[in-house]
Design a protein around this nucleic acid. Structure first.
Lengths: 343, 343
DNA sequence: TTGAAAGCGATACCAA
DNA sequence: TTGGTATCGCTTTCAA
């Protein structure tokens, strides 16, 4: 299967002129006569001619394609980021190749290589939660190719990043619970090495400290983001003598899953236990009670990451100074955290 | 910003030989001496040489890239399809460019053109719900480029398709409700022109007919997939003298939204009204009551669409005979449809 | 104002 | 076993 594409040669032949002239006429080069220009333009329009981008890419050593790697495509947060990337990139004349690492460091390296070999102009990536060794990404930087982190990052790489103020978001969430009269606020954190998780835990702790509340290690559980992991955390928290009256979770999966478990055990939300999670799913409106969330600006994250790429690729100076854009998470108060009201 | 890529020329120079020889050695051409081959291979490995795919693309007139257009990236169903496409394509050595039409026929044409101009080898598409005029897609077929429909299609185009047995799924759902003792089953359908919606409505009607139940037009509402649209439908159905005791919805959005409204009005699900929707979101487990759904094989749909593309692109014969793959939807029974049990 | 020719990086044919 | 050369489609320099 293949089909013949129209080339400059074809146009030149039909017009009895040279390839060069046709090329110039199409680009509006000053040296072409008015009559020739219109003749060429008309024929090109009539035949729906488009220059072969592969030839242009070869000539310019640019593919006008951005590679994007997300841990999972079918997670609402990442697909919103992808929307932001796609729209911004297309608007700027770039195409986007999306790949998933499936949270595997090994697969991540594979897709990085695959993307590199298809000669992308830059890479936007949220590394897998497994990734500890960043040499495959350092290689990209060393080659001089723009690399942009979003959502997750490694502090070791001096590249542009779009991150969310996790610390601030967690603090807001915790303060909100405190203001609503919660006394024993538990936190189910994410994987210990993930920067987001660390920052959120940090924000939670500092909010408590600021309110002169002692941090109770029993109220902090680390979760590996599986159903079983969440079940273990909930088991641990609810078997405490002094049970929590609020649970603040690292993400929506933990929030949904633990609310289900807590309700099954007969606790009422929010009267017995309040809930807040970091989440993005529009579905928070459909679960009961509606979940109070720290909303991450996912779409905006995609936009900003793409803008940083464009800025870097269009930078004329030799060295581009990497930037970090920090977006603000926003607390959206729904029913699950309103203890007072529900009493 | 740009960086120098290693070329065959560089290798040839370093080894004091010709470009041709290097090229052959790398490809394991029979005519190259053992000593030369190892020398070249070693240097290539050491320098991490990869042939420039843009040059290869130009030479072969192939980009090894598939274009994919979905109505929305951040919809769970489509992102699952995308996962299926991405994994299958990458495994076959293809890259994937994803674009969103945002359900706009105009934007769809734009991205089709953008993808065409970046010379994709084929296009997989679920057309926007607006799309009536298919000339932009017919053009692709006329050029001889593989076009594969998934999820949605136009019967006018003779191309390969991956569809779901909507009719059968709707029938299963309706029968399930009948078996559970529902007497007045309402259906909130989707946009009137969408093939999926038509088929689902059809399945619903036939299931009723098969059970010798007269179709009551009052129990059928068409919805435009907005919150207001759903509210109108629910308003209409609940203001009937003879109210429905079950509602079967076109998709998950309608199901979630209408369950919320119905519950707010004080009806109990499933004891007063049963619910079934076509849906894919893992979140159905977290809403109350858990929603019985007709599950669409989204990931598989992506896989199959990609396989059809690969089959067509690798087809040696002149004419490729398009195929239609029909996947089966599967009824997943949860709480929302079990009237008997809940009584 | 127009055109011939070189070059982007790789492959493949034809000579040596 | 090697290497020169044409070619893919386009842009750009240099010459006419």
């Amino acid at each position: 299967m293949s089909y013949k594409q129209l080339t400059l040669k074809d146009l030149a032949k039909q017009l009895n002129t040279s390839i060069t002239t046709v090329s110039r006429a199409l680009k509006g080069h000053y040296s072409i006569s008015e009559s020739m220009r219109t003749k060429v333009l008309e024929l090109a329009k009539q035949l729906d001619f488009h220059p072969n981008p592969m030839a242009l890419n070869l000539l310019k050593s640019r593919s006008f394609t951005i590679g994007v790697i997300v841990p999972e495509i079918a997670h609402h947060f990442y697909s919103m980021v992808m929307e932001g990337i796609e729209e911004t990139a297309v608007a700027a004349g770039y195409n986007v190749m999306f790949c998933a690492s499936k949270e595997s460091s090994e697969k991540e390296e594979d897709v990085v290589n695959a993307l590199l070999q298809s000669r992308i102009d830059g890479l936007l990536i949220a590394p897998s939660k497994e990734t500890i060794n960043y040499t495959h990404l350092q290689n990209i930087v060393n080659k001089g190719m723009p690399l942009i982190f979003f959502d997750r990052h490694s502090a070791d790489l001096r590249v542009s990043k779009v991150l969310v103020n996790d610390y601030e978001g967690a603090m807001q969430a915790t303060n909100h619970l405190l203001e609503n009269g919660c006394k024993r606020i538990a936190h189910i954190a994410g994987p210990k090495k993930l920067s987001n998780s660390i920052q959120r835990l940090h924000g939670y702790k500092d909010a408590l400290k600021n309110s002169r509340i002692k941090i109770d290690k029993d109220l902090i559980a680390h979760c590996n983001l599986t159903k079983e992991g969440v079940a273990d955390c909930i088991e641990k928290l609810l078997s405490l003598k002094n049970k929590p009256d609020a649970i603040f979770t690292y993400n929506s999966f933990i929030a949904f899953e633990s609310m289900l478990l807590v309700k099954r055990k007969g606790y009422k939300i929010p009267s017995d236990i309040c809930f807040i999670g970091f989440a993005n799913e529009p579905v928070i409106s459909y679960i009961e009670p509606q979940l109070t969330t720290v909303l991450l600006p996912a779409y905006e994250m995609g936009q900003e990451a793409t803008k940083l790429f464009l800025e870097q690729i269009n930078c004329k100076t030799e060295k581009y100074e990497p930037k970090t854009v920090t977006l603000q998470a926003k607390l959206i108060v729904k029913e699950s955290s309103l203890k007072k009201k529900a009493k």
